[in-house]
Simulated scan of single mutants.
Amino acid sequence: MLYFSKMDGRRWEPLQHDNQSTVAADFRLRPKRRIVPCRPRSLYHKRSITMATTPRNPRSKSGNKPAVAAPTGVIPVYDSALMQERRQRILDETRRVIEENGIESLSMRELSKRANVAQRTLYNAFGSKDRLVGLVIQETYLTQLSRMKFATAPDTMEGVIERLARVCMHFGRKRNYLKAVMDLYFAPTVHRDTITMMRELSYGNSRPWLLQLEQRREISPFLSREQIEGDMTDLAFSVMRKWAIGDIGVARMADEAVRGFLVLAAGATTGEAQARALRTLALRKRRAAGPATAVEAAGMADMAGVE
């Protein structure tokens, strides 16, 4: 049975119960369907054509076998002088672009034009843009570090302080380079191998000293040498990050990096190493500003001649 409402033109349908009986008091209100003429579908709808495409395998020049890409993380071997010269030219041009305009303006297409190589060559040789920038950072850091003259041994606390302060002051003047290091290190999509490489560069400042402490058993029994290296690296990068975003200046960056190192050293070591770290912190407090030791002050003073 159908019941139509005279007021709004809608129809009433009886509600069918489980016992197939119709109860006159239970009705469900449903709108009437309107039949509207419409145009054929083909007049106002475009047919979506889906083509089943199969990716083509790249073919090698010598035969019909598909070219096999190098495994991820494997650096190709350059066995000829021409290939080594081309690789070095690419790294030099990448470093110039970063120092001139920063990592934001680095484009693989523009870099291929400046280095006079094909864009495919960049990806075949380095894999990705992040790996290329990571190699440039590594080469630049090691080259600049080898040109610095230090007055202290690397396996002493004073040597770690001097190297840490001078690295901060030296690369702080190369704003685009150090900013590129921070942007790459804190990028969420950067490859893990690049992060590991950058951390290994930082480990080199404190590892000789920590190895000496490990032999003398002056490292806290609650920590390991690897954990201390990681904590010192995290602290150094966090301080440099504050400089990169403009919160602190270059001198403040070096000062906070040294102070953080001494605080970690005082808590992570025992014996003579801990006593020396505490004495250096007390000396810094009395001075209220400036470097931690006279050796560090001398190191900062002669940095102007290091390029």
Rank of each mutant, 00 (worst) to 15 (best):
L91N: 05
R47T: 14
L223I: 02
R286H: 13
M83C: 06
L106G: 04
D234H: 04
E307R: 11
R192C: 07
L2K: 13
A289M: 10
R284K: 12
C38N: 11
R95K: 14
K6F: 10
G299M: 04
R39A: 12
G230Y: 00
N101C: 11
L43N: 08
R166M: 13
I248F: 00
I137F: 00
V167Q: 05
I219M: 03
L29C: 14
M83S: 14
V167W: 00
M240Q: 05
Y203G: 02
A69G: 11
V77C: 14
M198R: 00
R96Q: 08
D193F: 01
P58R: 10
A268D: 02
V160P: 01
S62I: 10
L132P: 02
Y44G: 09
W243A: 03
I75F: 09
F4M: 12
T196Q: 11
R86N: 07
P66V: 04
K65F: 08
R11D: 08
E162F: 01
A115I: 02
R33L: 15
I228W: 00
S238H: 06
A289Y: 09
E272P: 01
Q16F: 07
K32C: 07
S5P: 04
V258W: 00
R96Y: 01
L278R: 08
R95E: 14
E229K: 01
A266E: 08
R39P: 02
Y141A: 10
Q88C: 08
D247W: 08
R279C: 06
R252Y: 02
Q144R: 09
L43Y: 04
K46T: 14
A297D: 09
N205M: 09
K65W: 10
T54Q: 15
R114D: 05
E110A: 15
T140I: 06
V97K: 01
I219W: 01
R175G: 11
H17R: 13
P208S: 06
I35P: 02
K129R: 15
Q16H: 14
A304G: 12
Y78N: 12
A288F: 13
Q84A: 12
R252W: 02
A304K: 12
A153L: 10
T269R: 03
V239E: 00
D8F: 06
R286A: 12
P31G: 10
A81L: 11
G204S: 12
S62Q: 13
E200Q: 14
G249E: 07
R30V: 14
